[in-house]
Design a protein around this nucleic acid. Structure first.
Lengths: 92, 92
DNA sequence: TAGATATTTAGACAAATTTCTAAATATCGA
DNA sequence: TCGATATTTAGAAATTTGTCTAAATATCTA
């Protein structure tokens, strides 16, 4: 069910930026927010959407909540691209 | 400029379906519309968005307008995924 | 040129999205 | 337990998106 959700999640440039930041290592919500001009609740909202799409995971450590990439769904998205690019496929 | 536009374009399931249909061969706007429950102007709207994102090209042949995949931008999108998946990258 | 077919454009409208501020929740440290 | 810090939740407002109907444009054929 999160295939479509994931495509929608990565459609937003702020969320793609979050994913790029996490590529380099896990970050807390606050650290992520420092990279944006938005208010923290807005960043939190984007994190929620990424989480619902299974693109990131979160874990609490004391007062902080750490976010990290969950790469498994990326594989599925990549597969869709592969399928489009290789002619003579048969996925509907 | 069409990198973000392309990500937005593929966020819609109807548009992804159009791209999948075109994978098998070029189709006219009317043939594409036959695969959907939407009215033709709505399909035309989706085609316009795909065209603006450089994901498809169109050419008129008599009364018909044929649509075909333009795979060059797909490569760019794929690159973004690759970049996320391989750790230790340095794209911001 | 007139009528038929194929497609797009224009404009309206409802639903979804993005952002904000204010308030709530969770944890830490004294 | 209280106050400070970190983060999310709630709810409102503005913008964007997806769809529709009606009308316009382009091409073909008789």
């Amino acid at each position: 069910m999160s295939f479509n959700e994931a495509f929608k999640a990565i459609a937003d440039p702020n969320r793609r930026k979050i994913l790029s930041l996490l590529k380099k290592g896990d970050l807390t919500a606050g650290e992520i927010a420092e990279h944006f001009d938005m208010q923290k609740p807005s960043v939190s909202h984007h994190l929620k959407i990424l989480k619902q799409a299974d693109l990131v995971e979160d874990r609490r450590v004391g007062q902080h909540i750490y976010y990290s990439l969950n790469t498994t769904v990326f594989q599925d998205l990549m597969s869709w691209f592969y399928d489009i690019l290789q002619k003579e496929g048969d996925k509907s």
